[in-house]
Every structure is written in C-alpha cells, then in structure tokens.
Design a protein around this nucleic acid. Sequence first.
DNA 1: GCATGATCATGC
DNA 2: GCATGATCATGC
Length: 447
Amino acid sequence: MYITKKYDYDKKDVQSIYDYASRLVNHTLGGIRNMPMTLSDSPARNAKGKFGQFLEKYYFGIDNNSDSEPDFKEAGLELKSTAIKELKDGRISAKERIVLNIINYETIIHERWESSHLLSKNELIMLIMYLYEEDKCFLDYIVRFVALWKIEGEDKEIIRQDWEYIVKKIRAGKAHELSEGDTFYLGACRKGWKEGLRKQPNSDIKAPQRAFSFKTKYVNSIIKKIEDSENTIKDVSELKEKSFESIIIEKFAPYVDLNVEDIERELGSHLNRKSKSYYAMLARRILGVTAKKIAEFEKADVSMKIIRLKHNGMPKEDMSFPYFRYKEISGQSWEDSDFYYQLEKKFFFVVFQMGKDEKYIRFKKAFFWNMPFDDLKESKKVWLLTKRQIVSGNAEYLPKKSENRVSHVRPHARDSSDTIETCDGKMLVKKCFWLNSGYLKEQIERN
DNA sequence: GCATGATCATGC
DNA sequence: GCATGATCATGC
C-alpha cells in the first residue's frame, strides 16, 4: 500500500505533526507516493544521516538546518530519526546513540540547566525509528515506531545531573578529559573526527568536539517504554474507582452508531480497510493500542473477537477456533480439552453492524461475555460426539451446524491439502470447532 | 512454514 | 439465505 506525501499538517501543532508522521509506520521512504527525487539526492551511497535529511526535506518539507532551535519551533518539537535493529531473538534494540546538539565549550559554562540549549531544543522530541538492515538502501528501511518523547520525570532528573557533571568539568578546564563513561543517560560523545580540536575556556589544551547524546542503553529504555505504551490500554489509571470492564466499555461508548470512516477520522488513524484484520485494528485503536496484542487482555486471558452483523442482525460468519488434532482429542476428556479451555475464557465481543449496503458499517456495541453454563453443556455434547466419531474412525463425519444450537465442526485449513493424521492413520483436512452464527446472534441480542 | 483469526465461495 | 467446504492474510 502506498501513502501519499501532501504536507497536510500544521507545523505549529504537535498533534498534527505527530498524526502526519504516524502514517510512516510500517512504510518506507521509497514507498511514499509523490516523493520527489532529484539526481543529487538519489541515494548512491548510504551516507550517514541520509534517512534523516531525506525525511525532513521531502516528507516534512522543512529545510535542513543546524539551528539551536527545534525543527518545528512554533510547536517546540524536535525531529529525530534513528536506526533500530532486530536481534536474533526478535527483540528490538537501538543501533546507536541519539546525537543531540554539539557542545559549545565557550558558551555552555554560562548556561543554567533550566534555560540550557540542550533542554530548549530537545525537551520534546518526535522519534522516528526505522529498522536498519545491512545492505539495504535507506529508502527501503521500514519505519517501526513514531513516538513523542519528553524529557521529564525521573529521567529528567538524571539527565540534569549528567548535564551538570559535564558542564562542571568544562568549567574546570577539563573539556579534553570528557568521557562518555562519566554519565548515565546523557553522554558527551565525540562528534566529527576531521573537525579537529576546539578551544575550551579555562585551559589552553584543545579538546575534541563533542555533542550531547542519549546513550545507547538509554535509547533502549526509550524503546522499551514505547513498546509498552503501544500494547497498553491508555488511561487505565481510574482503576481504583471503576472496574476494568467498565473502563473498557466506556472507551467504546463515544463511537456507538458511528460508521467506521467517522471513527477513523475521530481517532486520526489511517488503517487499511482492505485488511482482514481491519476491524480488530480499529478496536485496538479505540483502546489506544497500536500493537498487535493488548497487554491487559493477555494478562487477564481475555479473548477479543470481532463480529460483523448482516442487515438482518445475523453475524456474517460463524466464529472459528484453532484447529484440533484428531489424535489428541481421542485421548482427552472434556475438562482437559482445548475447546473447553477456549470456551471457559472471558470474551470481549466487538460488534459492527452492516447496512443494507454492506460497505456501510457502523460500530454497534462491545461487551464482555462468558458462555452460559447450559451452553457450555451443549458444547460438551458436540465435543463428546466429535471425540466418539474420531475414535471410531469416522472423523469425516463430525457434528454439523444443523445438529446443535451452539456449535459445530468444520474445516479450518490452508486448503484442502492441509491435512493431519486421524486415529486410524488416514490424512484428513484440519478442522476446528465453530460457534454458530445463530447462537452468537442470540447472545448479542441478550447483552 | 505454519498457526490463527477471519473471510470467501458454492451448492442446495 | 444458509450450511458447509475452502481459502486468505498476517505474524511469529
């Protein structure tokens, strides 16, 4: 999918800049439509900082500068792009430190922390983190995170102390003795090699040029926090007064009866409508989650399910579960079966209503749901029948939708050749249990 | 390469 | 229009 560069954002407004930047997530610079590329900009080599320059100039339409003011000065926002890499175990880590402004030895000794250059330029940063891959052109790096980062709280205190330490050393005429090991989060890293040495106050010894930076380990902690915030439901802080359930439900309340376009507009999101996971993504966005999983639901073992109702109120589809293994079921009892475990869980149903024109879809309601005891007993019947058929070598003939009010069995495979062995050694297409659409309809109407 | 959630296709 | 079989899309 392409995204389009239109500069349709307000340079004075942090939220607007952030929304515009967010469109980059999961995209590459090369994949942006309307990106002008003149010969001189064409990426013959991956010169350092090329990604950042290109991003600023062509995506945001701001000139490269080395001002002491933030890139978006009216918004007080500094733009920083930085490389991250994927480790072998799948975790993400910073490729290198994030370099902030150059330290001017002559003037910094007169600064105070509160009004320092460092803070006024970098207090609020918009981080664009792209996945670095060796041998790839920078135009093909995939943007993984776009996040606002503010120097605040405990971090700010540690950074202040680091800053004071560095400045104290410079005041003492020891700029040439600065070392990254001196400090914790904020480092004074070497910057430039050929630029040579700079004069420093209170000493005749020349010192290598240095810049403030967020040290690599600190960048890693930033990444960790961004990852946590992406899969965590926003503002669950009122938990003391309200139940978890009601907080979640309230998140959805403003969107009742809104069609999905309007919901997206209000959320400021641009999801791919064609994706099969569109509605699940939309539901997560409503909760303020951009990651694939919702941390709170994972912990509480809640299973979120999307249901789309046809115009007549009938779910468009039955609800599937993971496929089962014939041989495994034959040796299990209902109580230790996967199906029982799945049905015992708490569900979170997010229901959308299709209009007569099926393109018109609005959010109807969301609710937590447990399968009622009597229906669990029905499911047990289906499961027992399934087991009996499998054990007796009739795995082809499992309970059909018409045979039970609650659930049935039917194929769930990649295609008809995606098979698995039955008890009598035959290969049969993978199947799973399904909840009947008619049963789901009842449950939705009841809640 | 496969599991999983979700959806499509077709015949009655 | 539904039941049933078949398949897609995504992420790990």
